[in-house]
Structure formats: C-alpha cells, structure tokens
Design a binder for these strands. Sequence first.
DNA 1: TTTGGTGCAAAATTTTTGCACCGCG
DNA 2: CGCGGTGCAAAAATTTTGCACCAAA
Lengths: 156, 156
Amino acid sequence: MTDLSDREISWHYNSLNKYCCRLTKPRRAILDILSDTGRHLSADQIYKEASKISSGGGLSTIYRNLELLVRIGLVWKFEAGDNKARYEIAKRPDESHHHHLICKKCNSIIDYSDSIGNEKDFIREREKKLSSIYNFKIENHSIDFFGVCHTCSKNK
Amino acid sequence: MTDLSDREISWHYNSLNKYCCRLTKPRRAILDILSDTGRHLSADQIYKEASKISSGGGLSTIYRNLELLVRIGLVWKFEAGDNKARYEIAKRPDESHHHHLICKKCNSIIDYSDSIGNEKDFIREREKKLSSIYNFKIENHSIDFFGVCHTCSKNK
DNA sequence: TTTGGTGCAAAATTTTTGCACCGCG
DNA sequence: CGCGGTGCAAAAATTTTGCACCAAA
C-alpha cells in the first residue's frame, strides 16, 4: 500500500530526530498516513484517519505537528482553492514534485510527475533567473493547473 | 495611479454586462480597487478599501461579488499559503500571468511577468500535453515560487 | 411587479491558542 | 525535575448563509 520505500520512511523519521524533535505517536501517525496515501489530505482528513489508529492525537495536535513538519520540510502544504489547506508527504528535495491538476467541480487533485518533458530543467533554470533578478531566495515551488477533470466533464 | 488602460477597464465592465449582471456600485468598487492596485488583496483588504469609497458594500457583498467575478473570469483568486485567499484583477486571457514569488517570512507577493524567457510557450505546450494525457480540460494555471525576499533575508 | 442585488446578523468552517497534565531524558 | 509534547475546550479568523429590504428592468 505504501508508495514510499523503507528508505524514504526512515529518512522522514531520522530528519525529525535531527531537529531534536521526538518521534511521538501522533507525529508518526501523520507521516505514515501521508506516506501511505501518497495523496493530499486536509488536516481534518488526517485527523479522521489518525483517530482510527489508536492514539492518533487530537485535532490541535495534528495542526501543531503539521506546522512543525512543514517547517522542517517533511511535509508540503498547499491550498487548492477551497480555503482548506492540503498536506502531502515530502519527497527528497531533488525528487520533489508539487505539480497538480485541480478540478474546479469536484476538487479532486491529480499529481503529475514533473518528469514529463523537461519540466524539471525548465524550473531549475527559471529559479536561477528569478533569484538573481528579484534577489529572492527560492526554496520551493508549486505549479497548479485548474480546470475540469474527465469525470466531471462527462457528468454534466 | 491605474495600471490598466481605459480599454481594459471597459473590457471588465462590458464583460459583466455580457453575463447579464448589473454593474452595481460594490462591483464597480471591487474592480476599480483591484485594477488600481494591480496587486493581490484579501477580501478584508478590499472591504476596507471599499469602505473608504462611499457605498463600497458590506463584507458579505464583497465575498459574494468576488465569487461572481471569479466565476465570470474577471478576477483571479489564489491562495498564498496563509489560509487567506487573495484576489487580483484578471488580464485578458492571452495576457494572463498568475506567477508569483511569495515570501514565507513577510507574506509579500511579487508578480513576475511570464514574458521572462519562454515561459508562456512552455506553459502552452505543457497544457496541451497534460490535457491529452489526463483527459483534463485546463482553464488556467498558477505558478508560485516560495522563499525569502530580499528585505527579509537582510533583516534576520 | 418581478428579479437581481444589498446589508446586517447569525452560522459554519478552518485554524490557533491557553492551560493543565503527562512522560521521556 | 524540566521541558517537550499532548488533549481538551475556548477563541480567533475567514467565509458562507438566511432573510428582510431596495432598486432597476
């Protein structure tokens, strides 16, 4: 079910450790849940999932830990346009891909790999250029295409 | 003060008309405010600006009309990562550029024109490819780079 | 007069905060 | 013991909704 190898899992766990943060049950639950789905969940969805597992923590704990994990770089936060933040597990920096197709009708989110075409190279070159023009230290990016998904365009 | 020509202004006004929506005072206020700043404002900021002008409308009117204007395509909504939606005036489709540098420290947003390099071509080609692969009707897109702006990286 | 639009207040949703308590180091 | 971490409940912030009223076609 997991689409992250054990190597990735331990990378996340170890990173937490590196920042002198304990790998507590709620934190492990969040990382595991996000790793397992590989998708983008809202805080509430994570909370519900975590509640199934014993000791998943309260909602505020989820929020606090998500904030921590995002700050450390283990989880990526983004907003899909419905005023509700989504969280996804971070990949190693050089494998990161925060590129989405977001359906305006049903709010579903498709991840597409940035390995399609030469997107990665394009982004890298673009980051270099923008950094120097605007004197801006770029840490990460997000590319979202909005529209209507296949299913929704049929059912109308 | 305005960075949209009269031609642009009338385009927005006429579009409203085309959809059988009245150009009421609050709507005009929103369009004017967004056109004048040319920047990204939150609903609350628009409300405060509108309140200075007589008859800018209540906050709920602002929200309702923003939703309308976004749906019609005259205003572009996006979320900058602080759980607060921002709105910017739409340009004509072929001139649209929803590309931002967002500072994680001070939440400031820099617009950069997609005319830098061959970004426009790249996006167009990418949209075509993604559409066919995922059977997804793409309507618009957003490219955001997150990091630390010049000012914030000095004041630390 | 009919329908679209507004404004206020109340409600809903998402996220944050205060505080007492728990447990690892 | 001290401090990081948790959980509950209360609060804050943003956005949505209900409803009475207004005004243009």
